[in-house]
């Protein structure tokens, strides 16, 4: 009986409706969740569908996500087919008219920015390619700024009563972001033009911003696990044409990058990839601080040799 009384609140909580006074935001990836928090403050309640330790291509439409989609007022996703393996099911099972594609409650970030690596031919033989270009747009802060403007606009549309609030927060965020961006660009200036290797094609926007040169990837094709024969090829290539570091995202297997690091005698760098991917990356500012400091640390370690 005692246990029942103890369990009762937990049970009631489980059946409690999702918070209603604020705008319920379901963010497909943590970076958009963080952006929604920056812009919405206490007027939004944000739930991230994925974490930095998960591959956003490959999660499942879990019951918990279906339940969250049911009560969401706004869905904030990357688009460009990043979530094609699970989002369509989530949308169909949610029974939620507000967040269907084309409705104000459905927000995609990728169409707002200039996309890189748009394939010139579409063939599954080329691996996990996206017709709309590489979807990992979040690591160029200029993209974050652009998406921020549009997201604040969308929040104002959905929650008209607080439109001025969102616009004011956006202005404040944009200012802080602009000055942070200048700082990062100054810090990262020495990285310009250096050659690097990545495990997955997860960072083209970061490289485009900072001027890093990706000379090889450990995955033979996007989304295809690194094979030992391909790793040997990359190693041979690096002996001819050295790179300064090998980069992987926090959610990826550490073995291929570590192997390459050891064999090619270059540092292996783990980048958070998104908010929450490392310590001190609880918000977007932290994400970029940590990303840049890790790149600089690896580059200077390499210089010291």
């Amino acid at each position: 009986m005692n246990t029942l009384w103890k369990l009762l609140p937990a049970l009631l909580l489980a059946f409690a409706p999702v918070a209603g006074a604020t705008v319920n935001v379901l963010a497909c990836e943590p970076e958009w969740g963080a952006l929604a928090r920056e812009l919405g403050g206490d007027k939004v309640s944000v739930y991230d569908a994925t974490t930095a330790m998960q591959d956003p291509h490959r999660i499942q439409a879990r019951p918990s996500l279906i339940a969250r989609a049911r009560s969401a007022d706004l869905l904030v996703c990357t688009g460009a087919e990043l979530e094609i393996g699970w989002l369509p099911i989530l949308l169909r099972q949610s029974g939620n008219a507000a967040i269907q594609p084309g409705k104000p409650g459905y927000f995609e970030a990728a169409p707002l920015v200039r996309r890189l690596e748009i394939p010139t031919r579409l063939d599954r033989a080329d691996g996990d390619i996206h017709p709309g270009g590489n979807p990992h747009i979040q690591l160029d802060p200029r993209n974050i700024a652009k998406v921020g403007v549009a997201l604040a606009q969308r929040l104002s549309e959905i929650d008209r009563g607080n439109a001025a609030f969102y616009q004011a927060r956006q202005k404040d965020f944009a200012q802080r972001w602009q000055s942070a961006m200048q700082r990062w660009e100054t810090q990262a200036a020495p990285l310009k033009g250096i050659a690097i290797v990545s495990q997955h094609k997860a960072f083209p926007y970061l490289y485009d911003w900072l001027g890093l040169r990706e000379v090889a990837t450990l995955e033979p094709k996007p989304g295809v696990e690194p094979s030992s024969s391909h790793l040997a090829e990359v190693l041979a290539q690096l002996q001819q044409q050295p790179a300064r570091m090998v980069i992987r995202a926090a959610y990826q297997d550490e073995r291929p990058a570590n192997w390459m690091s050891e064999k090619a005698k270059i540092p292996a760098v783990v980048l958070p990839f998104t908010v929450g991917g490392a310590d001190h990356t609880d918000d977007l500012f932290g994400l970029f601080e940590v990303t840049i400091s890790r790149l600089i640390a690896a580059a200077s370690r390499d210089d010291a040799k």
Binding site: L13, A14, F15, A16, P17, V18, P63, A67, R70, Q93
Partner: peptide, 12 residues
Amino acid sequence: LKWLAPTELMVE
């Protein structure tokens, strides 16, 4: 006809 409850626990 399916109905999904507006709760954090999925109830369908």
